[in-house]
Amino acid sequence: MHHIGKARKAATYIQYLLISLLILVPVVWLVVSSFKPSSAVVSYPPVFKFTPIIDNYVQLFKNLPYMLYTLNSILIAGGSTILGLLLAVPAAFAVSWYKKSWPTSVALLARMAPGGLYLLPWYIIFSRLGINGTYLALILTHTVITMPLSLLIMASFFDELPRELMECGMVDGYSLGGVILKIAVPLSAPGMVVSTVLTFILSWNYFLFALVLSKIRTTPLTVAAFKFVGEGVTDWGMLMAAATVLAIPPLVITFFAQKWLVQGLTYGAVKG
């Protein structure tokens, strides 16, 4: 790019710093507050100096089944990510290879419906099938949101692949499935990473379906956090800890996958 003068460089850095602070300060406040006793969380003016305690976390994991909730979240998010990919990869390849755009439009259409629309019909259907509140049911519902995202991301990554490579593969005697598995998917490894990470996080974060459709043994973290939200708020320290436990895994995953995510998001994924 163009040469940048010293003064402008300094000004840019100051802006970088301000933006970083705006983004980070609330999150840091959240995490730090989770180590305060409840009374310190709600004291005004805010307390900056305090002896950190881990009581809030001890309570979550000892008095409440937070271990189970965490495991449930992992199972549901993991299951729906895998199922979503299994369904989306062949479809994304078809969309890209045969240059058809209607499947992505349909996938986007399903995303336009308000989540509440599905709740009652699903509950009734799952009850009749006898799978209400099971991991299976929750994974299926979450796949409804993960699959379209995987489809969009993978289709745009497949679009970037040189067609000749795959045509060569077919000449070499690969079946269409073989081309996908042996050529397209390995070449789109960054796409697979982006899609896995983003759909996992999307599924991890989503609460509305599980709020109604999970049972106590299959309750994920998002829904468990509702014990601390709404009218019944009493323990602010635990609320902060619950929010932190909920937010940490996506943040950590994002941090480790950041290289692919930034690339994926900026170059391929959401090119639309």
Binding site: L75, L86, I125, Y135, L136
Partner: peptide
């Protein structure tokens, strides 16, 4: 209804090797 059940279970079986909670 039955067909749908078969499909759901089928989908689940190929994807998941995890316990499914079935209330006794």
């Amino acid at each position: 209804m039955r067909n749908r059940k078969v499909l759901f279970v089928f989908l689940a079986l190929i994807v998941l090797a995890m316990p499914i909670w079935a209330a006794g």
